[in-house]
Design a protein around this nucleic acid. Sequence first.
RNA 1: GCCGAAGUGGCGGAAUUGGCAGACGCAGCAGACUCAAAAUCUGCCGUGGUAGCCCCACGUGCCGGUUCGAGUCCGGCCUUCGGCACCA
Length: 826
Amino acid sequence: MEKYSPQSIEKKWQSKWLDENVYKTEMDEKRPKYYALEMFPYPSGNLHMGHVRNYSIGDVLARFKTMEGYNVLHPMGFDSFGMPAENAAIKHGVKPSDWTYSNIDNMKRQQREMGLSYDWDREVLTCRQDYYRWTQWIFQLFYKKGLAYKKKAYVNWCDTCGTVLANEQVEDGKCWRCDSEVVKKDLSQWFLKITDYADELLKDLDKLQGWPERVRIMQENWIGRSEGLEFELEVPALGEKIAAYTTRPDTVYGITFLALAAEHPLVEKICEANPEKAEAIRDFVKEAQNQSDIERTSSESEKKGIGTGVYAVNPFNGNEAEIWVTNYVLADYGTGAVIGVPSEDQRDWMFATKYNLKKIITLQPKDRELKLEEMTEAYVDKAGILVNSAEFNGMDIKSAMQGIMDKAEKEGFGKRRVNYRLRDWLISRQRYWGAPIPVIYCDDCGEVLVPEDQLPVQLPEDVKFEQGSVSPLAQSEAFVNCTCPKCGKPARRETDTMDTFICSSWYYLRYTDPHNDKMPFDKEKVNYWAPVDQYIGGIEHAILHLLYSRFFTKVLRDAGMLSFDEPFKRLLTQGMVLKDGSKMSKSKGNVVSPEEIIGKYGADTARLFILFAAPVDRDLDWSDEGVEGSFRFLKRVWRIIEIFENQIKAGADEYDIKALTPEEKELRHVLHVTLKKVTDDLGERFNFNTAISTIMELVNAFYKFQNNDKLNPGLAREVSVNLIKMLAPFVPHITEELWAELGFEGSVHQQKWPKYDEAATQKDEVEIVLQINGKVRDRIMIPANISKEEMEQAAKDNQRVQELTEGKTIVKMICVPKKLVNIVVK
RNA sequence: GCCGAAGUGGCGGAAUUGGCAGACGCAGCAGACUCAAAAUCUGCCGUGGUAGCCCCACGUGCCGGUUCGAGUCCGGCCUUCGGCACCA
């Protein structure tokens, strides 16, 4: 055998796998299916270590499940619409498509150099017509079901990106992509009605037991369900009613004012009703709207308001409550109007104190009596007895709540209501490089869908890209001008494209039937392969992509296109790859390039290190010395096979196990313990790091025989064959090479995963620990299967135990079979 | 502020059901091979006492508890990281 040289071995096998198309997958009803999926990347140009980690995890799983006998679907593609391509066009004058496709070519080459077992025939590119045609088709499906609609609203706008953003894409009041401040704009935009599914999206989180709990909790918080009462307050001066929502109906007798959002639709009418204050109110509204999103939504910022001199009537007791226009009430949550109950809500307390508004106590704790003049803050505990609340006086909170809501419903001015924090998904983007929204506007017919046989609405090629200008699509006369499909008159196309998160909300379904040109996917195929059995990706998608995909799956299910409720059965959120304790980034200069590492040590070493260095779901600090260690291990594997090459080839698959020496029996024991542990770690627990460390122990045990040329050939063969098979999912090239080198037929990756011999994992003799009062005092070897009494006797017979218990009374003895005897003495 | 996760040698980490704390790897030290170095192989490697071993004490963020026995369970803190944050 020659020296281990990853560069030549890896190239050789990669082209062989590619030429022979060994990772091609077809439906097969005879075998159980397994769908392993890594989140597809954005084609930024190069793979980074996060990708390497993601794909290494997925590849081990796909290869392991294949060896276990599953029919494994393991596809890859590119989330290839999006801003960076357009920015490249603006900056360097390259076409977004050219930029994108050349990046894809480069990244695919890098993926191939990693030795990943993808079925490339199923590749999905979201920017290709054969894909976005169906993205548009699905949009139209949503439209026909009333789940896509256009409305005017105060939306999040990023000036740098020149487009609107979804709520989920605003982080701390800043754009998720470019970090610039987000402002509010009043625009007419397309939305998807995800709120229709809020309840199911929340409820079905219970079905996702294979997801990390924290992701489920994050989604739960994001959806933010609350129950309460919505009721109407009359405003005699306007001849109107204002609806308010509260989760504390028990406090309604304490209302002393009504707070409105600055954007509340009745604000202008209130100004008209009270001309004296109109100007001041309008100024206040303007000021509030000029505040940035961060200022307005921070809990630290000052709560301001202006009294309008117009009053609303509390329907419960007829009391008047002045209407205040404020900067803190959100226009798009609840009704945009909030009751002010100073004594039982801390924010209302501060607001009322600041503006000298009345406070009424309507809730008294059981153990003390509250007095307004002694109180310095609101009483917010949800415990006590109602006072000042008419017929509800003396009730506890729970019954008062029900009674008050019953009253509102009976008298017809209010209703129980569930509210969600989740808002509808704003999907229009004023950008070029995305799937055009397939809608036409006609002066006579209004909004008209582009007929299905005219899909896709294609992106025009002859457009200009300029910094800061309006969308290139809106400037393209040839694109905008069209005829109305209904009446044939001149009409205009929608020039907005879809949020790229739409494209990635269904790609995992397309993989099951990627070449279908009649439908997005065939029902039978999608139901065979999907849902995804194991999804692997970064935690950054905990809400965005994972919530949207769940929504899409449910809508497509309701449309009869598939028959499951959730797209991803199990989810694994991998940790980040760090260097020197912080995230790799160009600005910090701590980037380690996968290409360099693969060039120097080979893909097998890179994969092995990244899987060995830390548990998959934890952050991993990159270590150059650690990589050396992984490389060293592979060289050790290579050499030990080389040392025993002759025995392995001479050995038989069936041999006389009874003839083994005690040392050889021990090696065989280690082998089968390793098999058991590795199988368990890969299949049940995703403990790749400990699976590898166990294999290292096996190799260490094998090395004990390195100078022993009398090692039983059958055993040498058994150990080597199983060692190679166990390593195969992790390091596919070196194992394939060793497999061939030893003269075995076919690919190691098409072998059956080895079974362990239960008998060999047991031992005749075990070492147990002798404890006195819980402290280890000695260790002895005893037969594995002796009785409790025999164990106790063996412990008592032990010389050290006798020395240390001399003159003391044995109170108790605890025996744990095969582990320990604890003697409690006084 | 609310919710969640984590805290173990010089470092990454292991300990699956409450049962030998520190597997495996990195770094370090020593030896073998070598003219020498690299590579490789072997051994040592938590702290302190004793200074060779044996042995003893201490030790999993801190304080307390349950238990024959706690890194693991319970109560109370501290620190770090992540998510949400005027949601009425």
